[in-house]
Computed example of a mutant assay.
Amino acid sequence: MKKALYFMPDISGFTNFVNNTEVEHSIHIIAELLEILLDSTVLDLELVEIEGDALFMYTTTIPEYSNLMEQTNRMLEAFHKHTVNYDKMRICDCGSCRTTTNLELKFLVHYGDLSYIKVKHIVKPYGRDVIQIHRLLKNKITTNEYILFTNSVFELYKKQMDNSWQRETGIYDAKVLDYFYKNLEQVRNAIVLKASLTTSQNEEFSTPVLVLEKIFNANIHSIYSYLSELKYRHLWDKNIKRIEFNESKINRVGTEHNCVLSLGNLKFKTITAPSEEDLIYGEKTDNMMFTKNYSYLVKLHKIDETSTQVVLNVYLDFTTVGTMMRPSILNMIRKMWEEKLTQLHQVSKNNIQL
């Protein structure tokens, strides 16, 4: 019978969220991470299926020990570089987004028989050895991030394994199974340390050309969802016909979208500003007529659970022609934002489609 090396990267660390935004964002975050793991594959691994937060893969070409460990390290480094970068670029403060850096990755590796099951057109590995690697997802290991070898994998690589590997025993289906594991937490620690030493790149803003301040009778998080979730933009921005954006990705600093207008379109990029007390969302574009660049920031300050102070700052760098038209352009932008904020107040107060 053919033999195979079964390889399973498994993500853990999300708590159980109940808010709709948190659940939706956790799905997007996990999907991005699984894609990154797949893109980091250097071995001849075939994907069997995606199992929740895990990838179930296998290969009939048994790799060298060094190559297998390189595969693990590549995935782990790519995984944590993404979570750290996501945390630096995120604009959302929901539970899923806020705890992305808490996510952990472990690897399970098993060597055994390769047999298949076919149901209609679907063919995939099946049998005792497939069951065994899944059983070992529950084990006694207290380390958060590790690679686990079953005893059969240990027999393949024991001459290359050093004393950093530890042995453990568990009972599965009334059978005693030995397995070996290696702590991999140092990979994450090194990436987090390096990120902490890197200075954040924040937008620099001059004096705003327009400031509007309102009090909304709505919850701050409801308002922020309507502001930052591009799928809700049509509910309060009536100047656009539609917005084109990647619906499989969560909006963050640097995210681009295209606003299709009655005449032409405008391409925007998401921006923000640092704040410890307020929620801030903004966008910028350099293709607005008569301006070199146009940007805005909306700052939300919580008054109480149902009241929020909303402050809009608009920044403009006019072209030469735009400078001559400055009063009329500012008047047009003021009216436009007065309408947008009025509509935003209504939809956030009534929680329309949220």
Rank of each mutant, 00 (worst) to 15 (best):
F17A: 14
H301C: 06
N202W: 04
Y179A: 02
D178F: 11
T169H: 10
E35T: 11
Y281R: 00
T308K: 00
E70I: 13
E35S: 13
I27E: 15
A54V: 08
I333G: 04
K340F: 12
E247T: 11
I171C: 11
T142Q: 14
K349C: 09
M332P: 09
N313A: 12
T142L: 15
V176E: 15
S115W: 05
K267G: 04
Y294G: 02
N20F: 12
L76K: 13
G52W: 09
A31V: 09
Q132W: 09
E204G: 06
S228G: 06
Y281K: 00
Q166I: 14
Q346H: 15
E213R: 08
D317Y: 04
T255G: 04
L330I: 09
F149M: 03
T101R: 11
G13L: 03
L108G: 07
K214V: 06
I141W: 02
V192D: 08
L210W: 05
S222E: 13
V321D: 11
T198P: 05
K284A: 03
N16V: 12
N73F: 13
N139F: 03
S225A: 15
N183P: 02
V109Y: 04
V311G: 03
V119E: 10
A78H: 07
T207G: 07
M57Y: 04
L156Y: 06
K267Y: 07
N139A: 03
S206I: 10
V209K: 12
K267W: 04
I171S: 14
L108K: 10
K120F: 13
N219V: 03
K140S: 12
K138I: 08
L316P: 01
Q346T: 11
Y146T: 02
K120D: 13
D173E: 15
E276N: 10
L103M: 07
D178G: 05
I131Y: 10
I329C: 06
E104D: 14
D317V: 06
W236M: 01
Q132E: 14
G95V: 06
V48K: 07
I131N: 12
N219I: 02
T101V: 10
T272E: 00
M336F: 10
F154W: 12
N313T: 08
G282M: 00
V211G: 03
Q186N: 15
L316W: 01
T207L: 10
N313V: 05
T306V: 15
V311C: 07
V260R: 07
I91N: 00
F17G: 11
F149P: 01
V310K: 00
I215Y: 05
E213D: 09
V18T: 15
R188E: 10
I191E: 01
H301W: 11
L108Q: 05
H234P: 03
R252L: 05
T100S: 10
S196Q: 10
D178K: 11
I352R: 08
R128D: 15
A4K: 00
E64A: 13
E22A: 14
K231Y: 12
D173A: 15
K140M: 11
K159C: 10
V192Q: 10
T72D: 09
I36H: 02
D129Q: 09
L330M: 14
R334H: 13
K158T: 06
C94I: 00
Y65L: 07
L330P: 02
S328P: 06
I36K: 03
L136V: 03
T198G: 07
T207C: 07
Q186P: 07
